[in-house]
């Protein structure tokens, strides 16, 4: 209990003093996870929409795959991406292992199924008449998809938030592909692991509090956007 209070005090101290190392770590966490989610949306929205509307063989199987992918263990993702990026691996010549880019890729793999699966359910829960009406008015594909996305924006924002939450909170994948290098690839979650291992529990708890705060602030922004659009 005393340790928790010590951690809280430490967190306040770190925040008010704007510890430069802490700022680097927070900033990298945010950059990597936001980057991963933006990419996941860019890929996942079209795929999710296609899977939601498509009528073809294997469509259900792909939807089930996306749903199962929401439970993808980050360590497995980390291991797979690391094996691909190893010097001896197929993408080794890219020289990406232990770089923030590799961390973005790993978190993208984690966030993508979440975005796809939630996009599918957001689109499918729309009134089917919306699509029919748009088509009957002669809407082009792009016009119709933009109508659907506008109608499903609450669900799509939820997909973005869930994807971001999955990305920023995981530790297994960034630890493996990033290497937790101080000043280069250390993010909030891996910093917490390191400080715990070193026996600096107060710092670890402080970092935990700050990570929660970061996640909350990011979601606050997204929620405001989401709820404002509700009244448009």
């Amino acid at each position: 209990m005393e340790l928790l209070l010590k951690g809280l005090y430490r967190a306040l101290d770190m925040l008010t003093s704007a510890d430069p190392e802490l700022v680097t770590i927070l900033w990298l966490s945010l950059k990597v996870s936001v980057g991963a989610v933006v990419l996941a949306l860019a890929i996942g929205l079209p795929i999710g929409t296609w899977l939601a509307l498509g009528r073809f063989r294997g469509q259900r199987f792909l939807v089930a795959l996306a749903n199962a992918g929401m439970g993808l263990p980050p360590v497995v993702v980390g291991l797979t991406v690391a094996v691909l990026l190893w010097r001896s691996g197929p993408l080794g010549s890219w020289g990406l292992l232990y770089t923030p880019t590799a961390m973005v890729l790993a978190q993208l793999v984690i966030a993508l199924p979440i975005v796809i699966a939630l996009t599918i359910s957001a689109i499918q829960s729309l009134d089917p008449r919306i699509r029919l009406e748009a088509m009957s008015l002669g809407a082009s594909t792009i016009q119709m998809v933009s109508v659907l996305w506008r109608e499903a924006r609450l669900g799509i924002m939820a997909a973005a938030m869930a994807g971001f939450g999955g990305a920023i909170s995981e530790v297994g994948a960034v630890l493996m592909v990033g290497g937790n290098i101080r000043g280069q690839t250390r993010v909030m979650t891996t910093a917490i692991v390191t400080e715990t291992r070193m026996g600096h529990f107060d710092i670890a708890i402080a970092l935990g509090i700050l990570l929660l705060l970061l996640v909350f602030l990011a979601n606050l922004v997204l929620t405001y956007l989401q709820q404002r659009q509700r009244y448009d």
Partner: peptide, 10 residues
Amino acid sequence: QYLRSSQTTA
């Protein structure tokens, strides 16, 4: 038609 072009978008 929608299907085909959304596939190309993806």
